[in-house]
């Protein structure tokens, strides 16, 4: 077990935003903060529309970590990028550097008053004692310490969003790709959610041109 990762399957994500809502609820995040978001590419273009759920990707060479002037970031042994809110000065540099828009700030006030940065923790809390009230209040629930995976992935209705050890996640994805196009287990996804009649035929036609 070495590396925790998220993986979002664009063939399955139906942009239900369930992961966004689940995350907000589980961690009781402050108003205005959205740790996870769903981006849709080619919205409304039949056959080309794809959605992806994005949050902190827990980078190996994390830009936020590289630019933080007070060094609040750390990576756990499982490759999760966490931060210490007590030391955060709210300068916003992580917000400039992050490619995925993960760092969020509760305020956007004059004189650069932003409050403490908040981001996805892979449901691993922060430096406070695991499961403590202080941790819940600052960073949200620590599901990893309870032997659970991030809620966004665990409750994903189409199992588009996968989380966990990289090896296991990629095994699941590989099995899925091998069977893709088949029936049965592969039924979950676009066609289940939106039907396969007219749309399916249009997709095929669009792909043929």
């Amino acid at each position: 077990m070495a590396r925790m990762k998220f993986l979002c399957d664009a063939e399955r994500c139906i942009e239900c935003n369930g992961c966004v809502t689940a995350c907000k609820n589980e961690h009781e995040v402050p108003w205005g903060i959205q740790r996870r978001r769903v981006v849709t590419i080619n919205d409304g273009v039949v056959g080309k529309e794809k959605s992806l759920s994005v949050a902190c990707m827990h980078c190996t060479d994390a830009p936020c970590m590289a630019v933080c002037p007070v060094d609040v970031f750390y990576r756990t042994e499982d490759g999760v990028v966490l931060h210490d809110k007590d030391a955060c000065i709210g300068c916003g540099y992580c917000f400039y550097a992050c490619p995925f828009g993960a760092p969020q700030f509760p305020q956007e006030g004059a004189f650069g008053q932003r409050g403490k940065m908040d981001k996805c923790t892979f449901c691993a809390g922060g430096p406070e004692a695991d499961g403590s009230d202080a941790e819940l209040e600052k960073y949200g629930r620590n599901r990893l310490a309870e032997g659970k995976l991030p809620l966004c992935a665990e409750m994903c209705s189409t199992k588009a969003l996968l989380a966990g050890d990289a090896q296991t996640v990629s095994d699941i994805f590989r099995e899925r790709v091998v069977r893709r196009g088949g029936a049965g287990a592969e039924a979950i996804g676009w066609n289940t959610a939106y039907g396969s009649g007219e749309q399916k035929r249009e997709q095929t036609r669009g792909g043929d041109k």
Partner: peptide
Amino acid sequence: EHQSITFAA
């Protein structure tokens, strides 16, 4: 290009 988001961000 051609990317969008439903929830405000």
